[in-house]
């Protein structure tokens, strides 16, 4: 009888599990997806498969990589919109529990490039005011959907979604899903941006647990005057009308197919590319014949 009573008391006091999964640990990224986009990074003018609008295309085309020589730009961490992508985001996910009740208060993610560490609040708190500051990591809250952790992030800074100037505005919102399968974890990012995207931009990343990993986090970057001859307020940019054709030329892709846009996300777009390729081949075939005639 006494044992049964004790059991009842223990059951009443026990915290319900709510199908939570522990995603904490040292996680190494798997680079099997989109390797060139991770390292060295997407090429200039490569907007393939990105649902960007005309404003984003203009901003990306005017982006001059020399801007990274500005002292204020040298030490930028990767923003939340990109930081789980790479390069090399081996991360440590930690559980933060209430010291009194032992309940999960938050997860923290450390180890992304430049330490835009993130806190994912799990206690149902509201997101901050529109007047609150934005950070590179943003303000994240999480909820469990079965065994999947859904994370909602706001208050991100104006930054990028690819390291070739494709922008993301501070009005962007990000939703992620973390799904653990034993020693592996999938993470999917869904970015909505009313300023620069025609449709949400979706990207996935995979990780595997690595108990021998120790994520180093003390990384204060030092900024220096790299160029020395630039005036105060120097901001390099490409003028209006600049197009970056190198990517299309190098991979022999029709230039139009590198320009991005929501249309490029769907399989039907392949037919359009094939049509352009045929037309291009016919054009070059005709011109070759004409050249031969002329040479005769």
């Amino acid at each position: 009888m006494r044992t049964a009573l004790q059991l009842v008391v223990v059951m009443l006091l026990a915290t319900p599990a709510f199908a939570q999964v522990d995603i904490s640990g040292e996680w190494s990224r798997e680079n099997h997806e989109d390797q060139p986009h991770r390292a060295p990074g997407a090429e200039l003018g490569d907007y393939t498969g990105m649902p960007i609008n005309a404003a984003a295309r203009r901003k990306a085309e005017s982006w001059d990589a020399s801007i990274l020589s500005q002292p204020e730009q040298q030490a930028k961490p990767h923003p939340g919109q990109y930081s789980m992508r790479g390069p090399a985001p081996n991360v440590r996910i930690s559980r933060i529990v209430d010291p009194v009740g032992g309940q999960l208060v938050a997860f923290t993610i450390a180890g992304t490039f430049g330490r835009s560490d993130r806190t994912i609040w799990m206690d149902g708190r509201p997101h901050p005011s529109e007047y609150a500051e934005h950070t590179f990591g943003g303000f994240s809250t999480g909820e469990w959907l079965g065994k999947t952790l859904k994370v909602t992030t706001t208050h991100l800074k104006t930054a990028f979604i690819n390291r070739n100037g494709v922008p993301s505005s501070y009005k962007a919102g990000m939703t992620e899903w973390y799904v653990r399968h034993g020693n592996r974890m999938s993470q999917m990012t869904w970015i909505s941006d009313p300023i620069y995207l025609e449709e949400p931009f979706v990207r996935s990343n995979n990780y595997q647990i690595n108990d021998e990993q120790h994520t180093g986090t003390a990384i204060p970057f030092e900024t220096v005057d790299e160029l020395g001859d630039k005036p105060r307020g120097w901001v390099p940019s490409w003028p209006i009308g600049t197009t970056h054709t190198e990517f299309a030329d190098r991979f022999k892709i029709p230039f139009e197919a590198t320009r991005g846009g929501k249309e490029t996300l769907y399989p039907e777009y392949m037919k359009k590319i094939q049509q352009w390729v045929r037309e291009e081949a016919e054009k070059s075939g005709k011109s070759e014949k004409a050249e031969k005639k002329e040479s005769r």
């Binding site: 801007i67 930028k76 330490r115 609150a132 500051e133 934005h134 950070t135 590179f136 104006t158 501070y170």
Partner: peptide, 30 residues
């Protein structure tokens, strides 16, 4: 460090900023 936090900026209108946000704003105007 790394363009995060540090000095805060209260603009005439809108949200609180740090240096990075001002740099973005300055870059845009330039």
């Amino acid at each position: 460090f790394n363009q995060q936090a540090g000095t805060r900026v209260i603009p005439g209108h809108g949200r609180i900023l740090n240096e990075q946000d001002v740099v973005e704003y300055r870059d845009m105007m330039t």
